[in-house]
């Protein structure tokens, strides 16, 4: 299958100006290829840079050097040097991200949080809400909660709203940060099946996943990362 996400010599460090300009290198020489329909799980101890890599792949953290090539609308775009508007376009069409925690918007119902992505793609409100409703129900968010803003939901419910929001648009690339961290076994099983279906559609997935059962179920390949070692 075609490679649709590819990094070469990707490096990232943070300069903490409030700590006297302390430089903290986190990623160095990351070469990662992900093909359509493949799920790569990032593995390594805490502090190995898994989240930093995932955020860099989304363009949330700015790569310091190296490239992040993403297949977007038939061409390869280098996210490491793309301007903000290109990054927004890539996120809109191509690159989905499910963060660990839902960022709640005041007053927006769970249903509309999920349907929003479809609306921005010009799908009419009724069909967008229908699709959002069935995805929420599939993730065991009962209908009585759909009209309520998720601010008051439990951690597990918020995570499932977040998953619905991430999966609904069918982005060709999905980045998942601990997608099952606060879920019970039943809901973990549902997420595993959703990932399998996405893969079958040709979605490329990069995930961080500490749950060994989930990891074994979804991973085609493990990408092992080690904490950055100083040369000295």
């Amino acid at each position: 299958m075609t490679v649709i996400l590819s990094t070469r010599a990707l490096a990232k460090s943070f300069t903490l100006h409030l700590r006297g300009g302390l430089v903290m290198p986190v990623l160095a020489a990351i070469d990662l290829d992900v093909r359509a329909g493949e799920c790569v799980v990032l593995s390594g101890p805490s502090g190995a840079g898994k989240s930093t890599l995932l955020r860099s792949l989304y363009g949330n953290y700015r790569a310091e050097s190296g490239s992040i090539l993403i297949r977007h609308c038939g061409a390869m775009v280098d996210l490491a040097v793309a301007d903000p508007r290109t990054i927004l376009a890539v996120r809109h069409e191509t690159l989905g991200y499910v963060s660990q925690f839902l960022r709640v918007v005041p007053r927006v119902s769970a249903l509309d949080v999920v349907a929003e992505v479809l609306l921005t793609r010009g799908i009419d409100l009724d069909s967008a809400r229908d699709r959002a409703r069935s995805l929420l129900l599939r993730l065991n968010i009962p209908a009585r909660l759909h009209a309520i803003p998720p601010a008051t939901f439990s951690g597990g419910e918020q995570q499932r709203v977040n998953l619905a929001r991430g999966f609904i648009a069918g982005h060709p690339i999905l980045l998942l940060d601990e997608p099952t961290a606060s879920l019970d076994a039943d809901n973990r099983g549902i997420v595993i099946r959703m990932v399998e279906e996405a893969k079958a559609r040709g979605t490329a997935i990069v995930a961080i996943c500490h749950d060994a059962d989930v990891r074994d179920a979804i991973a085609d390949r493990i990408f092992t990362m080690a904490p950055y070692q100083d040369a000295a």
Binding site: F14, T15, L16, H17, L18, R55, G59, N60, Y61, R62, P84, I87, L88
Partner: peptide, 21 residues
């Protein structure tokens, strides 16, 4: 200047880092 979430989550300039923190 840049994408909102980039600048706020990965601020580079000392003043932005101060503002965000």
């Amino acid at each position: 200047t840049g994408l909102t979430d980039q600048v706020l989550d990965d601020p580079r300039h000392p003043y932005t880092q101060l503002l965000v923190s």
